[in-house]
Amino acid sequence: MGNTNVQDNPELLEMNLDYDGGHTLMEAVRWSKFLSIVGIVGMGLLLLVVLISTPFAMSGYGQLTPDSEGIVGVLLITLALYFGALVAAAIVLLRFSRLTKKGIDHEDQLIFNRGLKSLKVTFIILGILSCLSLSALLFSLIYPL
């Protein structure tokens, strides 16, 4: 009773965003917006601190040994790139929250898909960063300074 054949209605094979899924996604979008703003501000400030402290760190620690200037320079560039990538991830996450909310509100499939694409880019950046962080952690365990 009430069941329908897939052959009669091919649209039944479609996957739809249902009522519960849509509302939980909307709440996820709200929290992701908050996280992205905190991330942009927090990581932006840390990036600024790294950039401002570069000349002081170079003059303070760069003269300890003949090659310490190079090591400090590489370390600061790595930190700046790391925080820069995190800021980029936070900006793309903000784009995800904006586009997904707009897509759901306007029932626009194209904008919704663009929102999902932004979430994908966010996780790609975070995935690469977490792989690099884990590699650095394992390297520091195997070859302690």
Partner: peptide
């Protein structure tokens, strides 16, 4: 399969 109800396609967005 179960028929699609209004709640299943509440937002008129599909994957």
């Amino acid at each position: 399969v179960e028929p699609v109800t209004d709640l299943d396609n509440f937002f008129h967005l599909s994957f």
